[in-house]
Write a protein that binds this DNA or RNA. Structure first.
Lengths: 342, 342
DNA sequence: GTTAGCACTCCAAGCTAACGAGTGCTAATT
DNA sequence: AATTAGCACTCGTTAGCTTGGAGTGCTAAC
């Protein structure tokens, strides 16, 4: 069976009506929403075809139709008219986001808040990735007799620290040795190279000081690792409660979001032109089979860097939200570019 | 009407049975759980008295009895026998918690995880408070032409940092001035003294460099403020979903927990001997009127320092969980004392 | 003071009927 | 050949009703 212009119009009308109301859409309702006049019987025939083609589903025999994953997909890829944002709106959004200017973490947090508020969804954001980052600076601050703070600053602007307890008292020599080793083995090194292997050879080369110094370098390597996997921020989780159709799965979704790793996986999906939409069962996590995820990447100084995303019901107002996400990721990218390079 | 030993036994049995099963307790059920034999009619009479006295409630005329807030309170204060923890258990708990040794944040996070797992509740923890902490160290790390990381380390071991964008290019002089001003006005100063007033006089005294330098000191003061309000960690939020009786209020509770301020308020309540239990309507937040909060403070080197808490339904196994909380806060205090002072 | 007995209350679960929205099909119409 | 009116049919939802059982409060006897 072939797709016809009329079928497309009907499909679009079903999707839009369902997005608006959340109720299955019947043939009579649809009559009032189409820009051409046909009888409900005709619409029923067409809808039956669309069901057969896999674009619509019916919850039960005597109910209206609901878009399937495939239906949403077709709508988004071919039928949807993105809503233009008006000037006032975009300016006010930009102002809100820009209030987090200065510190990347603060900025992304702010952006997440804004997104969560605008979309009534859970917002996830990643900090600029540190993939090609290297060690810019390492500090060693004694806190007590046997404890020191080890601090790592990367070229991507990430700062990580850890308190670390050694087995021997810390002396002035300890501090000096730390900085000497850092200068020789860490400073300027890409984070990726600081792995267990590198660490082992380093410890071996420490000779008699290995026992004294190794805890601190182990800590430093830990920090490098943490800095490498870009942090994910989560905002507006509780918005999920506002969507009736998710009610049953909110606990499962939250459980999924609690762990960092699935989150970064979700966000790393952004491919073509920085925007990616995963609808319902297109998601690899089955907890999200009733949800949609919209991810938009942002670029800092021209290279792909991090991403903003939302998680909500499949029944999202894509025509409105997709432009939002693109706009906000643009703003974030712009502000970060200004902040980090200048 | 007076409390009698028999009434006390009946109250305790009702509370314990209800905690165990979650079902209202009837007079017949109770017969089997008391260590003396009386008829169900007698128990009914006594229970009617307990209702009148405010210790029990009945959901409706023909249902069993449920403990009221007052009933729980009486049980916890006068009737409860704390369960002893067995050796194996306490050792394994201590080992789990101790795996976070080294870094305070990591430790408290670990402790929160352990608590959440053991209690099936949401766990909240605070890092050691920085109340009397002072500025131990400040660092200024240029990241780009106009942006620098400002880093603050307190004597309590808290490390905070912020990227900060100035209005003028950063030069070697900027850096030197920063450290000079820090040495003169920040190092060694109690965090509490670094407020807006102090900042204003400082900026005034900067003279011609005010414009160039003030953003960094504003950032530094921000950091001091952040370090002052002790951070709160939240673990096992999703455990709340496991309690049927909370189902309706989980969204409200999560919304409450999302904000930092109510959290620290909850935790700061711990008074007498470090342990505090707030039952149902005893909580000042109405979202928690069906929940109980158990808070146990921990001490670092003898002075009250931070707290661990759980949030769950009123129907908590207090006799088991209170010892847990006391034990874990003891472990946390011990480990932190070792780490921070030595 | 305690207990057996009994009438009473009230929730929960299951059943039925009425309803209404929406469908699929058929036969008539354009 | 496509469209439409008409109609019987399906199925979920809601309301009302019944039944069963758990538990109570009261009274009278012990």
């Amino acid at each position: 069976m072939d797709m016809t212009p009329r079928k497309e119009k009907i499909l679009a009308a079903v999707v839009e009506s369902f997005i608006r109301t959340g109720e299955p859409v019947g043939s009579k309702t649809l009559m009032g929403e189409l820009d051409f006049r046909v009888s409900s019987a005709t619409i029923r025939n067409e809808m039956a075809d669309l069901v057969e083609m896999g674009y619509l589903e019916q919850p039960h025999t005597s109910a209206g139709r609901v878009p399937s994953t495939l239906g949403y997909r077709y709508y988004i890829d071919k039928l949807m008219n993105k809503l233009e944002m008006n000037k006032d709106e975009s300016e006010s959004i930009e102002k809100s986001v820009a209030s987090g200017r200065g510190d990347p973490e603060q900025l992304l947090e702010k952006a997440g808040e804004v997104i969560a508020r605008l979309t009534n969804c859970a917002a996830i954001t990643t900090l600029p990735a540190g993939e090609q980052a290297c060690v810019r600076r390492a500090e060693f601050v004694p806190v007590s007799n046997r404890t020191a703070m080890v601090v790592l600053l990367t070229s991507a602007g990430t700062l990580k620290s850890k308190a670390c307890r050694g087995d021997m008292p810390i002396t002035q020599q300890t501090v000096e040795r730390f900085y000497a080793v850092c200068a020789a083995h860490f400073l300027g090194k890409p984070l990726e190279e600081i792995g267990t292997v590198m660490l082992q050879t380093l410890v071996a080369s420490l000779g008699e000081y290995a026992l004294e110094m190794s805890p601190y370098f182990v800590a430093l390597a830990d920090l490098a690792n943490e800095a490498l996997k870009s942090d994910v921020l989560l905002e507006g989780q509780s918005n999920l409660f506002n969507h009736r159709e998710l009610s049953g799965s909110v606990p499962d979704i939250m459980e999924l979001l609690r762990k960092g790793e699935p989150l970064s996986k979700l966000l790393s999906a952004g491919e073509k032109d920085g925007l990616n939409v995963k609808i319902g069962t297109e998601n690899e996590y089955k907890q999200l089979s009733n949800s949609s995820v919209i991810v938009s990447r942002y670029n800092v100084n021209g290279s792909r860097s991090g991403a903003l995303g939302i998680i909500g019901p499949t029944r999202l107002n894509y025509a409105k939200l997709i432009p939002y996400m693109q706009f906000i990721s643009g703003v974030v990218g712009k502000i970060l570019s200004e902040t980090l390079e200048d």
